[in-house]
């Protein structure tokens, strides 16, 4: 496929550069006082939302290959790591700028507030995936690597749930994110079931 060839000529570092663009734009807006009356909240929310967006992109790679025969698998690791970078920035914004090291409140929040518990669980589960997102780990862990990285399905669900539970009412945006995530998870489940039934019959 010539399209695949052309696409795969794009070096991976380009993905990292492009992937940091949203952060640069947010910083540009921040320094120009264009993030609204409460720039901290906007910053915090934008970073979290981009983390979720990149997570969703990593889940899109396989369906794009199955349905459109476009192979972007080479870039999936970069997308996953970009997501981790944004989530780290999101979490640091919360701890350092929002809660300002009020550790008693931070710990209470993690323990008592479901949406924060869920978000924090998602972040913690991302750490082993980020740490093993390199060729060395793939070689060492062999089959276990694949197994470990299946955690991403759970993590992206936690991410979308974290967003959904944060808001006071039922606004559209987090619901849309959750629908996309559920769709991407369900098509995997269905293809699994299909494979199993193939084996049976």
């Amino acid at each position: 496929m010539s399209l695949n060839k052309a696409l795969n000529k794009v070096p991976i570092w380009c993905i990292y550069i492009i992937g940091m663009f949203p952060f640069l734009i947010i910083l540009y807006l921040l320094f120009n006082f264009k993030l609204g009356v409460d720039p901290l909240k906007t910053l915090e929310h934008q970073l979290g939302q981009w983390g979720l967006k990149f997570l969703i992109l990593t889940l899109l790679i396989t369906p794009i290959r199955s349905f459109f025969k476009i192979n972007l698998i080479k870039y999936r690791r970069a997308l996953g790591l970009l997501s981790f970078i944004y989530i780290c920035l999101h979490l640091s914004t919360w701890i350092f700028l929002d809660l300002q090291f009020r550790w008693d409140e931070i710990i209470k929040a993690i323990v008592k507030r479901p949406f924060i518990t869920i978000g924090m669980a998602g972040f913690l589960l991302m750490i082993p995936l980020a740490l093993t997102s390199n060729n060395f780990s793939v070689r060492i862990l062999k089959r276990n690597w694949k197994l470990l990285h299946k955690l991403i399905y759970f993590i992206v669900f936690l991410g979308a749930l974290h967003y959904l539970l944060l808001v006071k009412s039922w606004p559209l945006e987090p619901i849309i994110y959750m629908c996309i995530v559920l769709f991407l998870l369900l098509i995997r489940l269905f293809s699994k079931i299909k494979i199993l039934s193939n084996i049976k019959f």
Binding site: L30, Q100, E105, A109, R113
Partner: peptide, 25 residues
């Protein structure tokens, strides 16, 4: 959903730089 133990003062004249980004809780 929210800690009620503390709060952030928001707005242009709160101080802390960058429109209140570093303003004290």
């Amino acid at each position: 959903r929210w800690s009620q133990a503390s709060e952030r003062y928001i707005g242009k004249n709160i101080g802390g730089g960058l429109g209140g980004l570093f303003a004290e809780r």
